[in-house]
Simulated scan of single mutants.
Amino acid sequence: MLKAKALCAVNGNVAPDIRPLISVVENPLSVVDVHSKDLHKLFNGLQNIVIESVGDDEKIPEAVGQLAIRLMKNNCIIKDLLHELRQLYIRGQKNFRLSLAEKSDMERRQIIALFQDMTGIVNNIHYYSEFQSLNGSLIVMPKAQSFLTGQYLELAVYQTIKDVLQELGEKYHVDYEIFHNVRVADKEGKLKNEFDIAFQFNGIWYIVECKSGKCFSDWGSFAELGVNYNIVPNRLLLVDSFISDSKAECIEYFCDYYVCNLSGNTLREKVMKMISNDIAA
């Protein structure tokens, strides 16, 4: 999950500012902020639900956002390498040696360029052509680790969805909002759920979950979440960087929510389809 305040959609392509989402709401009738009122509609007035935000008011630099987009767009050639780096974090190791022997010459150049631009995340990047390996070391700092182990995908998915909302908002002349990391708890502060991304278009809410790891398989949990909050299944989207097209198709059929990987324009097409279903209704 992103350790950040919610992000409101804005016009233009500049990197969004992270700012406080809402004030705490102790019951459906006690609304302090307009965004808390709108977000509370997502939960259909469930009693004693508190909607919170997590993190600080830090602004995500534009360069960091652009790096996230590049990683997402190159997912097909780097996802296994990022998985290896995840394992290093788990084992408490810093130095890495990534084999690029199975990559084409063009893919090697793209990967090397990406790692060289991951300033502040990895150190001392060097490619050894005789071994066809990319060597370096991880920077073990909280922000760097968070970015590399999942935040990059949430940032990139957020920006992609925001661009779609802006395009459709201008086309249909309707309002939209998009938020990062919506956390739902009860009055006692016990955490219930965290949503990676929640957005509304023309007054209808949608939920997006991002998975950048290799081992996610709890497909039913996302379906149950939709049931718990009475969200129409075709307004739920699971973005999984490792899932195959065939598995995504099966999950969509049996679980009745949208699933996509990061190949081509799949993410953009799924978001378009979700929203278009309601526009056409």
Rank of each mutant, 00 (worst) to 15 (best):
I78H: 02
L42I: 02
K214I: 10
Q66E: 08
K190V: 08
K190Y: 09
I243Y: 02
D175F: 15
I77N: 04
M272E: 13
S241D: 02
V122E: 01
E177I: 07
M106K: 04
T119W: 09
G136W: 12
D80C: 12
E224W: 09
L71F: 10
P28D: 10
E194P: 05
S241F: 06
G12E: 11
S36K: 13
D278R: 08
T119L: 11
V271F: 05
A248L: 03
Q116A: 04
P28E: 14
E62Q: 10
A6W: 11
Q116M: 08
P142H: 08
D38H: 13
D80G: 00
R183Q: 15
L238G: 03
S36R: 15
A248F: 01
C8L: 05
D175L: 14
S129M: 00
F242V: 00
L100R: 00
F216H: 09
D278G: 01
F201K: 11
A280Y: 06
S99P: 12
D17G: 04
F147T: 09
Q87T: 05
D57W: 10
D256E: 15
N11I: 04
E177V: 14
I78D: 00
I49E: 01
L98R: 03
K79F: 08
I22C: 06
F254I: 14
A101W: 00
F254Q: 11
I125F: 06
S263W: 07
S244T: 14
N261W: 10
G220N: 14
K41C: 02
N48C: 06
G92T: 02
Q200R: 13
G55N: 05
Y89M: 05
D117W: 04
S137Y: 06
N135R: 11
S30V: 12
E62T: 04
M141A: 12
V184W: 07
F199D: 07
D175C: 12
V31Q: 13
S217D: 14
A198N: 07
I231D: 04
G65Q: 06
D56Y: 09
V24D: 11
M118I: 12
H40E: 01
D218P: 02
S146K: 13
N13D: 14
L29W: 10
Y172C: 06
E154K: 09
